[in-house]
Design a protein around this nucleic acid. Structure first.
Lengths: 345, 345
DNA sequence: CTGAAAGCGCTTACAG
DNA sequence: CTGAAAGCGCTTACAG
């Protein structure tokens, strides 16, 4: 006895609207074959009663969970906030719920996937940022549910991914147009991280390629490894300045790291866009106010696309795994444009 | 049609065990009034069939969600991993599920609490680390579900909290026994954080109190504010060393920050436990291998206690809000014991 | 386009 | 201690 007041049911709605419960159900589920007039009557009754369908009854009767699980790193980045919003926007249109499963340890993941109740909890899986197949025998997820990867890539599964190599290359090409050396701040995995991704390694490889194409050298001490935090950016700038003098052209592997670079530059009295040219990656909403140039990722769109792929799978459609590639796009702001631009192309 | 093979139901189990479905249900729910012999028969049948109860059917028939929602910050700390484990251990015994709700924005929270479906999703709420009442009119959560706070405190709700003030005081008292100045590294909220907690402010206040009691002064530049990251600890040590010379006695507000201090000390060739005496807070599992002294929090136990309080509320028991206080306890390791101990008590 | 009815897989008094 | 039966609130063919 947890609830205080009885909640209205489909029967009460049907009674009030003067229709059968089947019709109410059809209205709830946006079934096309309902007369507009009938639909209106039913909707009025629902509103009047403050009716909300019981999802559990729906799941029992429908024989499905109407739920999609999202397996994602347990980190504080805005990236995942945006990703979740993209997923949710698309899934909720089809009345699917989202269940978040934070990837903490492989043991938990294993337990989760093999648990007898997962069958009831989830119609499909979305796996963010990791290609987890390596954790399982045969490179297959131990589940009969459809799986879609987002911000990650595997040829055996539908994948929605960012072309990080291209991103790194664009960064190097762009920063090469300015005087001064090139620098890169990359994120290293924590030692204790058991799940690994390749995002930052790809950006770095792209950056090296782009630098080569522009005939610029990037020495090992022009690359700083740190964790994904603003403070990592601050440390990076301090370290660069021990051996190099402004102007510095810095590509931060993530906006959050670029934020730390900005803070430290300000503390040191360096002018952004002149002494330090700074380019981030992600396109977080706050970068606009901060005047941070960045390679923007259409994160919400990636989430929406992944959700769409999964919904199609859930409709039992059979096709080969689909690979959807997204590209970052450059947004120029004061952090790189403080002074005159030398266009050497 | 998402599932591949039909899952066995309670009827099949009953048939195979030669009992009624009611009996099977009683076995599943650990109802006391089942003969051991009957129970064994049923369990055998369940195992043989690979039976797992359908949680949705249970929720419909039982009229409850059998689910507890945990509202928690979306951060990567091990603290929450441990907290979740403590909660889950206790709740799963009573066949309650856990639903994680990451606190991203107040808007999402509002939408979530007021949504018509929350009534179906959740029998009770556990709110971690934040006293969210300030966000709502009248200082009450806009829900008729029982609410328990953990790692936070509010007189109107059951609360399980850590005595952070005591923790800070213990830290100062302990570190005062060593030669050298006292330092504190605290965590500041990000500007964009809308949810705020008082944990670090409390530890700091306690630290100041403890220092006073020990007749030690702590100047403003002996306190460093940073974000919750290992790199924050590295920056802190660098900063302290600009104005102070070893030995330094540092209380890091969190183990994660202490980790950064250790890394930076090593990089600078400083001896831990001699040049730098370091005390963390949390008692993360890895601190043992790293030899980090720390004020350990019984996180799992706090989670278990919170779960227990909520389960009691769910049994419809009425009592005044209960406040359960936990204390940290000091674990001494090489990071403070590298040299001789001056016991001045 | 719509209603009556069967069915989804459980829980829970009610008898015995 | 246990079984038969009603009921939870939906979905979904099946008729019309």
């Amino acid at each position: 006895m947890t609830s205080t007041k009885r909640k209205p049911t489909i029967h009460e709605v049907a009674h009030m609207a003067g229709v059968g419960i089947g019709t109410v159900s059809r209205v709830i589920n946006n079934h096309p074959s309902v007369r507009a007039e009938t639909r209106a009557k039913v909707q009025q009754a629902m509103e009047h009663l403050g009716y909300a369908p019981n999802p559990h009854a729906r799941r029992v009767a429908g024989g499905r969970s109407y739920t999609v699980s999202v397996l994602l790193p347990f980190v504080a980045t805005e990236f995942y906030i945006r990703l979740i919003e993209g997923l949710e926007a698309t899934l909720s249109e089809e009345r699917y719920d989202l269940a978040l499963f934070p990837l903490l340890t492989p043991k938990r993941l294993e337990r989760y996937l093999r648990s007898g109740t997962l069958a009831y909890q989830t119609d499909g899986l979305i796996v963010a940022s990791y290609d987890l197949t390596e954790h399982f025998a045969g490179g297959q997820f131990p589940t009969d549910r459809p799986v879609v990867l987002v911000d990650a890539r595997n040829p055996n599964y539908d994948s929605v991914f960012m072309d990080n190599l291209l991103g790194g290359r664009l960064a190097a090409e762009y920063l090469s147009r300015f005087p001064g050396e090139l620098f890169f701040i990359t994120v290293e995995e924590d030692i204790d991280r058991v799940f690994s991704h390749t995002v930052f390694a790809e950006r770095r490889a792209g950056f090296q390629q782009g630098a080569e194409l522009a005939r610029r050298t990037v020495n090992p001490d022009q690359i700083f490894h740190t964790r994904l935090s603003a403070e990592g950016g601050r440390l990076a700038l301090q370290t660069f300045l021990r051996h190099y003098s402004p102007p510095l052209n810095i590509f931060a592997g993530a906006d959050l790291i670029a934020l730390g670079v900005m803070e430290e530059a300000e503390r040191l009295g360096l002018r952004l866009g002149q002494d330090v040219r700074l380019l981030g990656f992600d396109g977080q909403p706050w970068t606009a106010q901060y005047g941070l140039s960045t390679l923007a990722q259409p994160v919400e769109a990636m989430g929406a696309r992944a959700a769409q792929l999964l919904l199609e799978r859930l409709q039992n459609r059979r096709f080969e795994p689909r690979q959807v590639r997204f590209e970052p796009h450059l947004i120029e702001r004061p952090s790189t444009l403080g002074a005159q631009v030398i266009d050497s192309r």
